[in-house]
Simulated assay, not measured.
Amino acid sequence: MPAKLSELVHSGQFPLFLLFVAFLTTFVVTRVITRMIRAGRGPFRDNVRGGLHIHHAVPGIVLMAVGGIMSIAVDGASPASEIAAVAIGIGTSLVLDEFAMILHLRDVYWTQEGQLSVQVVTLTVAVLGLMLLGYMPFGDDSGWLPAHLVMTVGLPVRLAAVVVCVMKGKYSTSLLGTLVPLVALIGALRLARPKSRWARRFYSADKLAHAQRRATNFDQRFGRWGLSLEDLVAGQPTSTVSSE
């Protein structure tokens, strides 16, 4: 066994490493297959049974449940814990690849709204990678804040800011804000996207017009950058409206 792999196994991080690899590999394979299906190429077709399209989030949920239960039942025993980690990685990837569909409760997989799934997967890969490197995204590594204060005050404030960003249609900001709290706080305080739930519910006609002007200006200056990368990963959507 190579020295680096041996160190990883003995450090107790091996199940997390397997989960990370399984998650990333499954997402890449899934996107390749779905894009081939969309293009009508290769042997793959939509999974339809009795007229019902079974989305890959369904087996993903099953694998997540099985892996989660197994990981608790075996209490770290090898190789069951490694098998559980792989099952969780595969299942989580299949579910998050259709996260936008679950959120909207309709098939938005190939739309701009569906690219939220790619953003969520990207965030998850980043978090898993940071955890492998020993950084806990939702903790306080600086040591200057008591752990209980971080959990009882800091984490709820961060989560609230992230939720507000989502309601304001700032999906990219909310995802980055889970890693960088200041980003979430700034996003929560700034104007909402004009078509977001927050804008429709709380904004007057004048403020909505202001939000529309700001969003248009933002999209013209920066919106295409993020979309180009997402188009490369997820495929060209049927509609493209940027969200900051």
Rank of each mutant, 00 (worst) to 15 (best):
M1V: 11
E7H: 10
L8G: 10
H10N: 10
P15E: 09
F17P: 05
A22G: 08
A22Y: 01
F23N: 09
F27G: 08
V28A: 13
V28K: 06
V28D: 04
V28H: 06
R31G: 04
R31H: 13
R31A: 05
V32I: 15
T34N: 10
T34R: 12
M36E: 13
I37R: 10
I37G: 09
A39L: 06
G42C: 04
V48Q: 07
V48K: 11
V48P: 04
I54T: 11
H55W: 03
H56N: 12
A57Y: 12
A57P: 00
G60P: 01
G60H: 04
V62G: 04
L63M: 14
V66N: 08
G68K: 06
S71N: 08
A73G: 06
V74F: 15
A77D: 14
A77R: 15
S78V: 13
P79N: 10
P79W: 11
E82V: 07
E82Q: 12
I83Q: 01
A84C: 06
A84R: 09
A85G: 03
A85K: 08
V86Q: 04
A87F: 13
G89C: 02
G89A: 04
G89I: 08
I90Y: 01
S93C: 02
S93E: 02
L94E: 07
V95P: 05
E98N: 10
M101N: 15
L105F: 14
R106T: 11
R106Q: 12
D107H: 07
D107M: 08
Y109C: 00
T111R: 10
S117K: 02
V118T: 13
V121Y: 02
T122I: 14
T124S: 13
T124P: 05
T124I: 02
V125S: 12
V125D: 02
V125L: 14
A126V: 14
A126W: 13
V127H: 04
L128M: 15
M131H: 04
P137Q: 07
F138V: 02
G139P: 02
D140S: 13
D140I: 03
A147M: 05
A147R: 13
A147P: 01
A147S: 11
H148V: 05
H148F: 12
V150F: 00
L159A: 14
A161M: 10
A161W: 06
A161N: 08
V162D: 06
V166P: 00
M167L: 12
M167I: 00
T173M: 12
L176K: 00
T178P: 00
T178M: 15
T178Q: 13
L179T: 06
V180G: 08
V180L: 14
V180A: 15
L182A: 15
V183T: 14
A184C: 03
I186E: 06
I186D: 05
I186C: 09
A188V: 05
L189V: 15
L191N: 03
P194M: 04
K195A: 08
S196F: 02
R197Y: 07
R200F: 01
R200V: 02
Y203K: 00
A205V: 03
A209V: 01
A209T: 03
H210W: 03
A211R: 00
Q212M: 03
Q212D: 06
R214F: 08
A215Y: 05
F218P: 04
D219F: 02
Q220S: 12
R221I: 11
G223L: 04
R224H: 14
L229R: 09
E230D: 11
E230C: 07
D231A: 10
L232T: 11
S239I: 01
T240E: 09
V241W: 03
